[in-house]
Design a protein around this nucleic acid. Structure first.
Lengths: 104, 104
DNA sequence: CTCTAGCGTTAGTTGACACTTACGCAAGAC
DNA sequence: GTCTTGCGTAAGTGTCAACTAACGCTAGAG
């Protein structure tokens, strides 16, 4: 889950994710969309996205097709939404302890 | 907006954000919550969060209080939600062009 | 078999970044 | 004024990650 957030922090990876959001695309089609960067770099970005389960891969001969994993994206949103709203009581204790340490 | 996502990619900054999510906290209280790291490091993390507008600062004498900027977090969620679902028709054209290039 | 297309992968470089140590600076106590 | 508290900031270090260039590998055509 942590790796997914890190993967999204890179603008190019977000762009790749957009490209394969609604359409399955072969690697060459993804790479050809970026002119200022090597095919190798894109391949590595795709690998990062795949390792963090944000895209899925399908092979057909030597060709590899990629597609966004929307389910994983949904999970990520849920994680972010709940991350802040859970366990806040415990954290408030920490805050109060810090205040009391100042008083003592 | 890009900087906010990058700021969130760091686990410690997410933890800091949680600490000040529901309570305003002075810098020392935030730093004291992390034992394996220097106060200076935390201060730098807070600066990153502040630059990306994820936390707000309030000064009182020499003390500085921080609080999560929930509005900015909401913006970030909207951005992520809409990022993938907008402009997809244009991107589908790219996909079809790639397919046709293969056929031709 | 050879040759090409369509990819991933490795080696090596460069820049970003999280961190520590040391310093600076403002506000209040005395 | 000096001293202390509560901070940020500058300089330097180690590590990670994005990139290019070169290589390797598999599936199919001929």
């Amino acid at each position: 889950m942590d790796s997914a957030l890190k993967a999204l922090a890179e603008p190019r990876r977000r762009q790749i994710l957009r490209l394969v959001w609604s359409n399955e695309l072969p690697a060459a089609a993804i790479a050809s969309h970026f002119e200022d960067v090597t095919r190798s770099a894109i391949s590595q970005h795709v690998s990062v996205l795949r390792d963090s389960r944000l895209v899925t891969e399908r092979r057909d001969g030597t060709r590899r097709f990629y597609r966004a994993n929307r389910g994983e994206m949904a999970k990520l949103r849920e994680f972010l939404d709940q991350y802040w709203t859970s366990g806040l009581e415990r954290l408030r204790d920490v805050a109060e302890a810090a205040e009391q340490k100042k008083g003592a």
